[in-house]
């Protein structure tokens, strides 16, 4: 049984009376422990696919099974619970809470989980150590560099020990060195057993994954080894 199994997923938006199809029948299986890169040009539907796979949005047609369970009938609260338990999100713009310390930012997902509050600090400091920011615990986001902020976001994504880590253009706002450090971290997480789904428009970056899919106009046009990604 695949970890993620989608069949014919479609996503249609309605704007000003006109319909826009962001996804057109996406069928995809992702196994546990995979490092998958989703690539494609801007506006191809990569982010929409991540939102659906990450249960942030519901497809307008097609089926999505997570660990063999249909997700279409889940309530909003159940979806929130699944996101909290199973997924970790890393966004291009970090999305850290301003005027809130690194430690508090990383603890945030634990607040919405069933984890006992007395363990929050130790869990958070552990993952902050993993991303190499133990010396920055009490710092606030505006006191950190871009690379450090993204590492805080990675620590936040890790704190609930999720099954899948979704990274949406995680190096988009970083310089080359910081971007490389973030990719090193994602690779390490993959080696430690996490399933990593990386969304990027950068072919070179995608090649560091094991498998890649190319999306164009809302449909998968290529699926294979990341090192063999064709031009798109």
């Amino acid at each position: 049984m695949a970890l993620i199994d989608t069949r014919g997923i479609e996503m249609t938006y309605e704007k000003g009376g006109a319909e826009t199809k962001a996804l057109r029948g996406v069928t995809l299986k992702i196994e546990k422990g995979e490092f998958l890169a989703v690539v494609g040009p801007s506006g191809s539907g990569k982010s929409t696919l991540l939102q659906i796979l990450g249960l942030l949005d519901i497809q307008t047609a097609g089926a999505y099974e997570l660990e063999g369970k249909d997700t279409s009938a889940l309530t909003e609260d159940e979806l929130a619970q699944l996101r909290n338990k199973k997924f970790g999100f890393i966004f291009q713009s970090f999305n850290l809470l301003a005027r809130t310390s690194v430690l508090e930012n990383v603890k945030l997902p634990l607040a919405y989980s069933s984890v006992q509050s007395r363990t929050w600090n130790s869990l958070a400091t552990k993952v902050i150590d993993v991303v190499g920011l133990s010396h920055r615990l009490t710092h606030e986001p505006n006191q950190l560099s871009g690379g450090e902020r993204q590492r805080v976001a990675i620590a936040r994504a890790l704190v609930n020990d999720p099954e899948v880590i979704f990274a949406d253009e995680p190096t988009g706002n970083l310089d080359t060195a910081s971007g490389r450090a973030v990719m090193d971290l994602l690779e390490r997480l993959h080696h430690e057993g996490h399933t990593v789904i990386l969304i990027t428009h950068d072919r070179m970056l995608a090649k560091r994954a094991h498998r890649a899919i190319v999306i164009k106009d809302g449909a998968i046009v290529w699926d294979g080894r990341a090192t063999d990604i064709p031009e798109y």
């Binding site: 909003e76 966004f91 989980s113």
Partner: peptide
């Protein structure tokens, strides 16, 4: 708004 979105993404329910 973005903070609300983030909180929801990482597991906050509407009532939270």
């Amino acid at each position: 708004t973005r903070e609300i979105g983030l909180r929801k993404a990482i597991g906050a329910r509407s009532k939270d």
